[in-house]
């Protein structure tokens, strides 16, 4: 299943936040969306998953999601969005409870995703007992449990410290190597974008427009350690963004 964004424009009252965004998200591809803070990248992601409606334009779903898919467009949030009153397995189970699954089926799925995210030993722990990295792993397990066609990740690593971020990034790469998931990945971190993205979309500051789309052909598994090609791409992205970021930094937040 592919996604296609056609002429997405959005305004809050009089302020234009996004202007004429056209973008294709192809199956098996990770599309990274980067841009200065407040450029509307998170808003755009909410539109892709149908949590917000653009003022004009549309998001099209091309092709059908696989038959066993329970929730085609599934989010992973920056703040994890775990229910504090449910245990690890309870949080995963939440996403499954509204679907017609037998208890044994549900149990199988939960055991499977917890094993895949190395959380099997933490089944009955509450979120407050877990570190930030573990919480995000739970959120990833929950997302995987509904067998999504496209993962929508909203700065999933931004609330974590840099070591944990490295570890989780490796997990995301491993997972992609195994399952070839499709993803839209919003971040402000250029290193994350060049490490994970097959396609990097650079947005300008408000109103967000696509400034450039950079495709990286190098396979994800090859993008480790020192890599001059990636570094030069990252530098290019930074020159693209620097002035925008500086201008965005000086804008008043409530001006919108």
């Amino acid at each position: 299943m592919d996604l296609s964004l056609r002429h997405i424009t959005h305004r809050y009252d009089e302020v234009e936040v996004l202007r004429d965004i056209n973008l294709e998200i192809k199956q098996g591809q990770i599309v990274c969306i980067i841009g200065p803070s407040g450029c509307g990248k998170s808003t755009l992601l909410r539109m892709i998953g149908g949590l917000e409606r653009p003022t004009s334009g549309e998001v099209l779903q091309i092709g059908e999601p696989p038959a066993d898919c329970l929730n085609p467009l599934t989010y992973i949030f920056q703040d994890f969005a775990l229910l504090p009153w449910r245990t690890v397995e309870g949080n995963v189970s939440l996403a499954l409870e509204d679907h017609a699954l037998s208890a044994t089926m549900r149990e199988e799925i939960i055991a499977d995703v917890l094993a895949r995210t190395k959380l099997a030993d933490f089944r009955t722990a509450y979120p407050r007992q877990l570190s930030g990295g573990m919480k995000q792993r739970v959120a990833i397990a929950r997302a995987l449990s509904v067998r999504p066609a496209v993962l929508l990740m909203d700065e999933p690593l931004s609330a974590l410290d840099s070591q944990t971020r490295e570890l989780l990034m490796d997990d995301l790469v491993d997972l992609w190597e195994k399952e070839n998931y499709t993803a839209a990945y919003v971040t402000h971190n250029l290193a994350e974008a060049v490490r994970l993205g097959h396609k990097i979309v650079v947005l300008s500051r408000r109103p967000g427009e696509i400034r450039d789309i950079v495709e990286i052909d190098m396979p994800l598994s090859a993008r480790t350690g020192e890599n001059s090609e990636l570094e030069s791409i990252q530098k290019r992205l930074w020159t693209l963004m620097r002035d925008e970021a500086r201008a965005a930094d000086r804008e008043l937040l409530d001006a919108r």
Binding site: L51, N71, L73, T74, Y75, F77, L94, A95, D98, R142
Partner: peptide
């Protein structure tokens, strides 16, 4: 937390499920 409600919506939970499993425990 609005984020939790949005999470519930993003997983396609029914309105009743969101009230029963997210809103009421959160207000408890």
């Amino acid at each position: 937390d609005r984020g939790l409600i949005r999470m519930g919506q993003s997983f396609g939970l029914s309105r009743l499920s969101i009230i029963r499993k997210i809103i009421l425990p959160g207000a408890l």
